[in-house]
């Protein structure tokens, strides 16, 4: 069981709502994923003319909505989007995303920290998308974030665990859940991240743009569960060479030894 703030989750796969072919495909894929926390961009929520179809379908699922501030390029805009989300969606959970860089959509560490601190003060449960920077993750923890969401690779890139060594340090140091948020392209990569001890993974592009998103969602769910089980079972150490069983201390098993 994973606990973030005051909520528990049995599924460690979090999903998103973007990039799907249609609302129906999104709905069925999320259902197949078993995900209980689903992020959606506030900027995509229809707020002018009509009720939002995506939102209406999401409300039918047994999930928590995690609105995100995608599109914000600085702390001020992100704080505004979070407050809008709280008013419109009636949730004080927010996935903080601030990316001024329009090509790789990489998060701005300074603005993210400023916004996180402010949003926590305003009573939000803040889950910040951030670079795989161990010091930044500690700083985000210090200002009261409920989890950190470091990237494995640029968002939507499907390039896998490029930041593996830094994620290792982040996991080691964190006292709050670590959710890998971006770049996971294959179920095997999700499993590898879970084996490392990541608490959860958010997968969107790899599911939404798969040939069969529904099936892919189910496969990610399986691989994430398997990876977590392996982590909890305690993976054996790896060695550079083959090891015979205890050649140096075999004699200690001898009844003559005390």
């Amino acid at each position: 069981m994973l606990t973030i703030a005051n909520k528990t989750f049995t599924s460690r796969l979090f999903t998103g709502t973007g990039k799907f072919r249609c609302v129906d495909s999104m709905f069925k894929a999320i259902q197949a994923s078993g995900s209980q926390l689903v992020t959606l961009a506030m900027k995509r929520v229809e707020h002018v003319s009509k009720p939002d179809e995506t939102l209406a379908r999401l409300r039918q699922l047994p999930i928590e909505l995690l609105p995100n501030t995608s599109g914000a390029t600085n702390a001020k805009q992100a704080i505004y989007a979070a407050n809008l989300a709280r008013a419109v969606l009636d949730t004080h959970w927010v996935k903080l995303e601030i990316h001024p860089d329009q090509r790789y959509l990489l998060p701005d560490p300074m603005e993210t920290l400023i916004a996180a601190e402010q949003l926590v003060k305003e009573g939000f449960v803040v889950l910040p998308y951030c670079g795989a920077d161990p010091v930044l993750c500690k700083r985000l923890e210090e200002v009261g974030c409920a989890a950190v969401m470091p990237l494995a690779a640029p968002i939507g890139s499907n390039r896998g665990l490029l930041t593996k060594e830094f994620l290792r340090i982040i996991i080691e140091q964190a006292n709050i859940p670590v959710i890998v948020d971006a770049g996971i392209g294959k179920p095997s990569e999700a499993m590898a991240a879970m084996e490392m001890g990541v608490d959860a993974i958010l997968v969107n592009t790899a599911i939404a743009t798969a040939h069969d998103p529904i099936r892919m969602a189910a496969v990610f769910a399986q691989s994430i569960k398997t990876g977590r089980d392996a982590f909890e079972a305690g993976l054996p150490r790896t060695h550079l060479t083959a090891l015979a069983s205890s050649p140096l201390t075999q004699f200690l098993s001898d009844p003559a030894c005390t």
Binding site: R21, C22, R44, H47, A72, T73, Q77, A81, L84
Partner: peptide, 17 residues
């Protein structure tokens, strides 16, 4: 656009941005 297997996007921005 739906028939082409794509999702038409009408809203992708917030006035406060």
């Amino acid at each position: 656009i739906h028939q082409l297997g794509l999702d038409p996007v009408f809203t992708d921005w917030l006035p406060g941005f």
